[in-house]
């Protein structure tokens, strides 16, 4: 083992200054950042889970954002640094406005189309299985490590090109960070996938407003769930490409935390409602009934006769073993619709 003691982290010849210089230096940097990126502080506060820290960041973010709005510096900084950005502009929420939910009269009857029926429910022969060439696995952090597990199962050996695209920290009700309405269009534009696996919902619960106006809905009453279902339905419709692709949308297993469980329940209900018109092309895979039957959280379950941890320590995500079980659910559903292997 080494015998040396760690050295000082700075050169002894480095210049000494006063504490007030340290404070001045940090405050100058802070003021400049507020002027150039105050809107980022405001946006960060709005996107945080509710709590004291979110309140503090929002309290600072609003005036900082206002100052940044009055100055032309933020736009200039964005333009100057755009070449460094790894993302295209996918924030904002306009994606869901492309097709705002039409207001319906209370006594109006919603139309029903043939797409609302899974042929198997009518006793019809299921369509011939098509070869699966391109698989997109996407969502938020819930989609990890499900994406890797599916990529292993449907890898190059099976002749399937699996695109893994988790967007951590994002949500359908959280469009300032990333707008799933825009992203879903982008995801299907280039190299449209034959099948889309979606596992999303760990960061939901933010207030939503209908893009064509109206009041803002707080989570998680029927109005909030309706807006959420509408957005999910828009995405499902984008992904299914009028029946050219299949969508496999996983519901959320109940989280350990009670507040999050309320959100998950509303999300799951909304997913099921959203899928109703598209049951010919969209499968809702109920991970909630597999991992948390009766809506009761559990860390572990019997797998092949052996008790196995299926949830992460955070009480939200699936463990590696849990993701393998979810991947099995998805694989079964995919293999019912597609042939795999050349």
């Amino acid at each position: 083992m080494q015998r040396d003691e760690p050295a000082s982290p700075f050169d002894p010849a480095t210049r000494r200054r006063r504490a007030v210089d340290a404070i001045a230096c940090v405050l100058i940097a802070t003021v400049i950042l507020a002027a150039f990126a105050g809107d980022s502080v405001r946006r960060a506060g709005e996107q945080m889970q509710p709590g004291l820290i979110a309140d503090v960041v929002t309290a600072v973010g609003h005036p900082a954002g206002w100052i940044a709005d009055q100055l032309p510096l933020a736009g200039a900084a964005d333009d100057a640094t755009a070449f460094l950005s790894p993302d295209d502009d996918l924030a904002g929420g306009e994606g869901f406005a492309l097709s705002a939910q039409p207001a319906a009269a209370a006594d109006a009857v919603a139309p029903v189309t043939a797409d609302a029926f899974d042929p198997r429910d009518l006793g019809a022969e299921p369509p011939t299985r098509r070869p699966l060439r391109r698989l997109l696995v996407t969502g938020d952090s819930m989609a990890m490590p499900l994406d890797a597990e599916l990529a292993r199962r449907f890898g190059a050996a099976a002749g399937v090109s699996t695109q893994r695209e988790p967007h951590i920290g994002t949500g359908i009700s959280k469009t300032a960070l990333l707008d799933w309405g825009k992203l879903s269009v982008r995801q299907t534009a280039k190299q449209p996938p034959d099948a889309v696996v979606m596992f999303l919902g760990a960061n939901e619960g933010f207030p939503m407003r209908r893009r064509d106006g109206g009041p803002e809905h707080e989570c998680c009453d029927a109005a909030w769930a309706a807006e959420y279902a509408w957005r999910v339905r828009l995405m499902m419709n984008t992904y299914r490409r009028a029946g050219a692709a299949r969508v496999y949308w996983l519901t959320l297993p109940a989280p350990r935390d009670g507040d999050r469980a309320v959100i998950a329940r509303a999300v799951n209900a909304a997913i099921r409602v959203a899928a109703a018109p598209y049951r010919a092309h969209v499968r809702v895979l109920s991970t909630d009934s597999v991992f948390t039957p009766g809506g009761r959280f559990r860390n572990s379950m019997a797998v092949d006769g052996r008790e196995t941890l299926v949830r992460d320590a955070d009480g939200i995500h699936l463990s590696l073993q849990g993701a393998a079980i979810a991947a099995g659910l998805v694989a079964d559903a995919l293999l019912a619709d597609f042939s795999v292997g050349s």
Binding site: C25, L27, L33, T81, S85, G169
Partner: peptide
């Protein structure tokens, strides 16, 4: 301070949407 702020702005531009 100006240098630190400039560097933070440049580095922040490389951060993807998920932070």
């Amino acid at each position: 301070g100006v240098g630190l702020a400039t560097l933070v702005l440049l580095v922040a531009a490389t951060v993807p949407a998920q932070g």
